[in-house]
Design a protein around this nucleic acid. Sequence first.
DNA 1: ATTTGTGCAAATCCTTTGCAGATAA
DNA 2: TTATCTGCAAAGGATTTGCACAAAT
Lengths: 123, 123
Amino acid sequence: MRITKQREVILKILAERRDHPTAFEIYEHAKNLFPEISLSTVYRTLKEMVERGEVIEIRMDGETKARYDINTGNHAHFRCRNCGRIFDIEILFPLKLIGFKVEKVEIYIYGLCDECAKKEVMA
Amino acid sequence: MRITKQREVILKILAERRDHPTAFEIYEHAKNLFPEISLSTVYRTLKEMVERGEVIEIRMDGETKARYDINTGNHAHFRCRNCGRIFDIEILFPLKLIGFKVEKVEIYIYGLCDECAKKEVMA
DNA sequence: ATTTGTGCAAATCCTTTGCAGATAA
DNA sequence: TTATCTGCAAAGGATTTGCACAAAT
């Protein structure tokens, strides 16, 4: 994989943002740093990174568009119904699937984050 | 929601199949039972059922197309890397997200099912 | 009769791809 | 040099929608 300005920019965005942007959001952000970049390059680069296992692709709650996450370890995503933010959450739990070989786990959790839960009780 | 032949057929398919079919697979199956049915009716009906909470939509491992499941309780999906089958799995685990209000959980697990794991050891 | 549902075709949204020119090694 | 990467525009796949007709209440 050659080092190009486009790939540097995409990697930098993924490393700095932890809000799980879509390909289009990454493209919009990248244009500020490198205006000539194209949307297809963003898609191509993300696809390659996913295939290499450097980035994971998530789709919360049946969304048609994918979001990207440079955190490749097994972890859960929590989306707040109120503010829409997506939090990374580490969950340790005992998987006892007798005879099954578990290679990857994706967990999506929906509800209210601590701040919004407080507000709802008050309202 | 009026009772039409189309909706009866779609419900019957969802109730009988537990292999998490896509909209197109439901359409193909439905045509055997009611040839005049259209793909857009299948999509429209599924979307309505999802909005009513009668059916859930899942997208395993970044698949672009949705799959449908009449089992609406919180449960995990296990996809076998080898045979591709998707198993429903009940997992009880303690969620301790302090201050967070959990309303829904989606868990996707990937690996080898018991049968395929045995074969891999032997091979 | 009135409201809701349907099929069809066209539109839309997200993503991928072919190609000819550009760039990193 | 030369293999890989890029932008563009066009194609592709999944899903949604406008509309006039059909069916359910």
